[in-house]
Amino acid sequence: MINDGSPTKTVQKKGYVKPTISEVKLRPEEAVLGNCKISGSSGPLSGSCASPTTCSVLGS
């Protein structure tokens, strides 16, 4: 190999970053759209969500 006198190029390597585990909290009871959060259930005789007076809120 011929050395042409130019400075040696160095490849900058990224520093090693140790992998970390982050915990993400899940709320399965919210994710499955189970039922009305106010009346506790949907359907007949349950304080149906169809009635604005018994269930106008689905949750926040």
């Binding site: 009871e29 499955v32 189970g34 039922n35 259930s41 007949p44 349950s46």
Partner: peptide, 24 residues
């Protein structure tokens, strides 16, 4: 099975949602 008001089934390629309440 949502564990609450609804369950989902597959019947010959068709999806079937069924809804239940304590009264039903």
């Amino acid at each position: 099975d949502s564990g609450m008001v609804w369950r989902l089934y597959d019947e010959e390629g068709e999806r079937v949602f069924r809804f239940f309440s304590p009264q039903s």
